[in-house]
Design a protein around this nucleic acid. Structure first.
Lengths: 258, 258
DNA sequence: TCAACCAAATTTCTATAGAATTTTCCGCTA
DNA sequence: TAGCGGAAAATTCTATAGAAATTTGGTTGA
C-alpha cells in the first residue's frame, strides 16, 4: 500500500508544489478517472516550470507523490507522451520536453492554422442566439474596469472570462463541420487551457488583469465577424487573437528553458 | 498464463485476420515495444474494416488474441484513443470510431492544412543533394511499366515506393523549422501509413499498381518545386497530392461504415 | 405488459510482485 | 588517469489477482 502518509512527507521535499498539506487529502481520485487527474496535475506542473525540461520522470516516485499505484501513473505518462508534452523512450521511461518561448510559438503556429480553418468553416453555421449571447458577455467583460476590482470581483471576473473563452472556442470547434478537426482542436485546447490557467494565476497574484480585458476585445471581434457572416474577417480576427496570445504567453514563460 | 495455444484456436473464430497460424508465433513482441506493436496491429484492423465502428473492444479478449497480458493492451487502447481512432469511456472501455469516407476526408483536410504549411516553410531549407536523389527515385518509379511486373518485381516496386514516400514526407517534416508541427505530422503520418499499407496490400492482391505510379508523379512535382525554391508551387503540389490520396482512399474504403 | 429491482456475470481498474532492462558504481588493468 | 568489465541498484515492463463498476438477465409486483 503506497498510501503511507508518513513516508510521503519525506518525499515532499522533492516536490515544489505541494506545501504542508497531504497529497492524499489534497486530491481525491475517482476510480476510472485517476489517469486524467494525474495527467492534468502533471500538465500544469510542466507548464508552471516545476518539472524541468529534460527531467526524467520515475513512475514509482510519482506514484508515491500522488498516492496511487504506478499503473495509472504509467498510463498518464503514455497519454501525455501522445500529446507531445513528454518524450517516451521504450524501456527508459518519460522525459519532460522543453516548453519555452520557442515551443509556445510553435504550438501557436499550428493552432492558428487549425483554428482559423475551423473559424472559416464554422462561419454561417452557428446559431445567432448563441452568438448574440456571447457578444453581450464579451462586451460586458471588455468594459470591466480592471484596476478597481475587489478580490471577490476579480475571482468572478476570471471565472466568467474563462467560461466565455471556453464557450466560444468550443462553439467554433463544434460547428466547423469536421469532427476530426474539432478533436484536434480539443487536444490543443487542453494544452492552451493549462497555459492560460497558469498565466492567469500569475496575473491574479500580481493583481494585473489587463490581458483578460484585451482578450475579451479580441473575442468580441471574432464574434462580430461571425455575426456579420464574414468568414475572411472572422478568420483574420481569430488569427490576431492567437498571435496576441502567443506574444503574451511568450513573455510570461521563461526565456527559453533548458 | 494466457499463452495456452490450444485454447487460442477457439478464439480465432472471432478473429477474421489470423488464419491457421498461431498468434504467438506470428508476432514476436519485444519487451518494451508490445504497446506500439499492438497499436499498429489494431490500427490496420480498424482501417481494413475488420474491427467495426461502434464495436466494443474487450481487453481480455484482445489479450488472448495477441497472447499478451491485458496491461499492454490497455496501454495501446489508451494511446489509440489519444489518436482519435477509438473513443474511451471511463470504466466502460474502448469503442471503435467510424472510419469511413467521411472520416478519411476529414483527416485529409487537416493533414492538407498542416502538410502544406510545412512544405511552404521547408522550401529552401532542404539539402539539394537529398532532393536530387529523391527526384531521381521518383522519376524511375514513375517510369515503371506497372502492367508488366513479376510478383518479385512488384514487391520490390512497392517497397521502393513506400521508402521514397516516407523519405519525402519525413524530410519535409524535419525541415519545416517547427518541431511541434513536425510531431503533429508524424502522428498523422502513422494514420496515413496504415491507410496506405492497407490500400497497397489490396492493390497487390488485385495486381493493380496504377496508384503507385500516379503517386510517384505527384511526389515528383513536389520535389521539383522544392528544387526550384518555389514555396507556392510546392505547397500547391502537396495539396494536390493529398487531395488525390483522399479521393483514392475514399474509393477503397467502404462507402460509409456504421 | 411493463417498469423496478436484485443478483450473477462480465468487464474495467488498480495494486503488487517479479522478470527484463537499463543505469550506476566500483575495482581492475593498461 | 582513462577506459573497461561486471556486479549491484534502480527502473521499466508485464502478468496476475482482486476490488469496483457496469452490464445482463430474470423475477416480482403493479
Amino acid at each position: 500500500m503506497p498510501r503511507d502518509c508518513g513516508a510521503s512527507l519525506l518525499n515532499n521535499q522533492s516536490h515544489p508544489m505541494s506545501g504542508s498539506n497531504n497529497n492524499s487529502t489534497q486530491l481525491r481520485y475517482d476510480r476510472g478517472r485517476r489517469r486524467s487527474q494525474v495527467m492534468a496535475a502533471l500538465l500544469s506542473e510542466v507548464f508552471a516550470g516545476h518539472l524541468r525540461p529534460g527531467q526524467h520522470l520515475v513512475t514509482q516516485q510519482l506514484a508515491e507523490r500522488f498516492a496511487v499505484s504506478h499503473t495509472p501513473i504509467r498510463e498518464a505518462l503514455i497519454a501525455l507522451a501522445g500529446m507531445g508534452v513528454l518524450d517516451w523512450l521504450p524501456n527508459r521511461g518519460a522525459v519532460v520536453r522543453s516548453v519555452g518561448r520557442r515551443e509556445v510559438e510553435e504550438i501557436c503556429q499550428v493552432r492558428r492554422l487549425l483554428e482559423c480553418a475551423a473559424t472559416r468553416r464554422a462561419c454561417g453555421g452557428i446559431g445567432l442566439v448563441e452568438l448574440e449571447r456571447l457578444r453581450q458577455t464579451f462586451l460586458e467583460l471588455q468594459q470591466v474596469d480592471v484596476h478597481r476590482l475587489t478580490p471577490r470581483q476579480a475571482r468572478r471576473f476570471i471565472d466568467r472570462a474563462r467560461a466565455a473563452d471556453n464557450a466560444l472556442h468550443d462553439l467554433i470547434a463544434a460547428s466547423c463541420g469536421n469532427s476530426f478537426l474539432a478533436q484536434e482542436l480539443e487536444r490543443l485546447k487542453l494544452l492552451f487551457r493549462v497555459f492560460r490557467d497558469v498565466a492567469w494565476q500569475q496575473e491574479d497574484a500580481r493583481h494585473d488583469y489587463r490581458r483578460l480585458a484585451t482578450e475579451a476585445g479580441e473575442h468580441l471581434a471574432i464574434v462580430e465577424a461571425l455575426l456579420r457572416n464574414d468568414p475572411r474577417q472572422a478568420a483574420q480576427a481569430m488569427s490576431a487573437h492567437i498571435r496576441s496570445g502567443a506574444r503574451y504567453w511568450g513573455r510570461t514563460l521563461p526565456a527559453n528553458a533548458c
